[in-house]
């Protein structure tokens, strides 16, 4: 059994028409089925409006299925009695670093999740310190959150998720509002967490980030149109372009230089070029 099992998931937003009646609106997610294994690193890519964020929010019950089901570690997200079991297993980091920090002081914000779980104060302290060390923000724990840069705030948000000791963290475009340095730092933290056995699901627009995952899920108009490894995906350039995605820089180079399509990483391409000289 996979850690997260999504089956025939449909999420439909209802609209209110001019007369105040609820009418069915757009299906943001339309018949998605997928399994996510424990410890894997999955990227979800797609154009704006492809439903990837909606899918992300349904993985921990922030959005509930209109039809179909999402089962996390044996708990159905529609089961109200176990919604906190689901959310303590699947943490989430959002796009805007400013709008997800609850407390003015760094360490108090990281403690917010564990406090909600009703954990003993000593244990919360240990988890907060540990989480802050993980993201390299331990020496700033007494600082005001508004004094930090966007990248630092995002690291605090990640620490807030880690402190709940989830088995999986969903990152919903965590780097979209960061500068290149902040992005690189957040990506390296995500990879470290994955190496420690935490399942990571990364929603992103950046192909250079997606290619670091084990598996890339491509979405379009609420449907999954591709579920491949990065190497498989980026060897099929027409497909990538038809999905409205850009190519990672290295693959772009490979395409422009007319190199063989089986080269999928910057290192392989560099090796090929060096060998052919």
């Amino acid at each position: 059994m996979s850690f997260i099992e999504v089956k025939d998931l449909v999420i439909e937003f209802t609209k209110i028409d001019d007369e105040g009646n609820e009418v069915p609106g757009k299906k943001a997610v339309d018949g998605v089925s997928l399994n996510i294994d424990k410890g894997s690193f999955v990227a979800v890519v797609g154009m704006n409006g492809s439903g990837k964020s909606t899918l992300a929010k349904s993985l921990n019950g922030l959005l509930l299925p209109t039809a179909g089901s999402v089962v996390v570690d044996g708990f159905d997200t529609r089961d109200e009695d176990h919604i906190w079991d689901v959310r303590s297993r699947v943490g989430m980091v959002f796009q805007n670093p400013d709008n997800q920090i609850v407390s003015s002081i760094v360490e108090d914000d990281v403690a917010f999740g564990p406090e909600n779980l009703g954990i003993e104060p000593d244990e919360i302290r240990r988890r907060v310190d540990d989480a802050l060390k993980h993201v390299g923000m331990y020496d700033q724990k007494d600082k005001g959150a508004h004094m930090l840069s966007g990248g630092q705030k995002q690291r605090i948000a990640i620490a807030g998720a880690i402190a709940m000791r989830p088995q999986c963290i969903v990152f919903d475009e965590p780097t979209a509002m960061l500068d290149p340095k902040g992005r690189a730092r957040v990506m390296s933290i995500i990879k470290d967490l994955n190496a420690e056995g935490i399942t990571c699901i990364l929603i992103t627009h950046f192909m250079s980030e997606a290619e670091q995952a084990d598996r890339i899920i491509v979405m379009k108009d609420g449907k999954v149109i591709g579920d491949r490894t990065p190497a498989e995906l980026f060897s099929d350039i027409p497909f990538v372009e038809s999905a409205g995605l850009e190519l990672p820089p290295a693959i772009e180079l490979r395409k422009m230089a007319g190199l063989p399509g089986n080269l999928s990483t910057a290192a392989e391409i560099a090796e090929h070029i060096a060998a052919s000289r």
Partner: peptide, 27 residues
């Protein structure tokens, strides 16, 4: 309002469910 909505989602994602059963790091 947009910030409030984002924050509410982030709080729910971190298991906020009111004051009952909540502990504090610094009593």
């Amino acid at each position: 309002f947009r910030i409030a909505q984002d924050l509410a989602l982030a709080m729910e994602a971190r298991c906020y469910h009111g004051g009952s059963g909540r502990t504090r790091m610094n009593e």
